[in-house]
């Protein structure tokens, strides 16, 4: 099939950037979306132009590196799917596809479709951990955890940190990401000692990074490749409010 691509091209952080149109032919429906971009890049290189820069790594939907907004939807039209697992059979011959980077003040564009997501790392640094040093930990079975709680924890922990929630949110809010981490530890006894501190510090950092606020559109949940439920946001709200109102830290 033949496609028209409208892509965001931007040389570097300070460049203004803009949309550029490319025509691509002989796209096979078996190709993944990123393989289609590989073909485009090969043809650009052959024509002496610079290939389009985009982030990817594992190409099996788990590393969280790929990050394209396709026709206005982060990770494209399939639900519960990262871009790298999106296949071209989802598109029709003659389609025009808009490809843009994640858009958020906290995720500056480094080049073309590549954004800087280190704001997420800094949020984790602020409190997205359990403070244990290596060694000296009790036997793994010393503290039983109800299966239902462990499952809730795992649901939240499956976040791949791709940032699609931010890209999709009309307010570029990171609440689903932060909520997922807070929820993972909230449902485990190991996470309880630091729960108050964790919520306040992560929210503080989230705000400092310039993410927007949650206004409960739930668009994040709709695009999340791991289909993380917005209950994690309710849990984050609860943890934060309880800490602030009781003054515990």
């Amino acid at each position: 099939m033949n496609l028209t691509l409208q892509m965001w091209r931007q040389r570097n952080l300070s460049d203004e950037g803009g949309m550029v149109q490319y025509e691509i032919s002989d796209v096979s429906p078996e190709m993944s979306f990123l393989e289609m971009l590989d073909i485009l890049n090969e043809s650009l290189i052959a024509r002496g132009q610079e290939p389009v820069a985009f982030d990817d790594d594992c190409r099996e939907g788990i590393c969280g590196m790929c990050s394209l907004v396709i026709n206005g939807i982060p990770h494209g039209p399939d639900s519960g799917t990262t871009v790298c697992q999106l296949h071209m059979r989802r598109f029709q011959d003659g389609d025009t596809i808009y490809i843009e980077p994640w858009r958020s003040r906290a995720f500056p564009v480094l080049r073309d479709l590549i954004v800087d997501r280190n704001a997420f790392d800094r949020i984790i640094q602020a409190g997205g951990y359990i403070s244990v040093n290596t060694g000296g930990t009790p036997d793994a079975n010393a503290i039983p955890v109800a299966k239902s709680e462990a499952d809730l924890s795992m649901d939240a922990a499956s976040c791949i940190g791709c940032g699609a929630c931010v890209a999709a949110c009309p307010n570029a809010s990171a609440m689903l990401f932060v909520g997922a981490k807070v929820s993972q530890f909230r449902h485990l006894p190991q996470g309880h000692t630091e729960r108050a501190r964790r919520a306040t510090r992560m929210v503080e950092q989230m705000d400092a990074e310039g993410f927007g606020n949650c206004t409960n559109h739930y668009e994040c949940m709709a695009v999340c490749p791991k289909e993380i439920d917005v209950r994690v946001i309710a849990e984050l709200n609860q943890e934060f409010l309880r800490t602030e109102l009781t003054g515990s830290e």
């Binding site: 409208q6 206005g72 939807i73 858009r103 906290a106 570029a172 927007g212 559109h217 668009e219 709709a222």
Partner: peptide, 18 residues
């Protein structure tokens, strides 16, 4: 704050469930 959180809008903006 929310406007400021996305200084550059999408050229083609769409949503799933807003």
């Amino acid at each position: 704050l929310n406007r400021r959180a996305r200084p550059i809008a999408y050229v083609l903006d769409d949503s799933v469930q807003v």
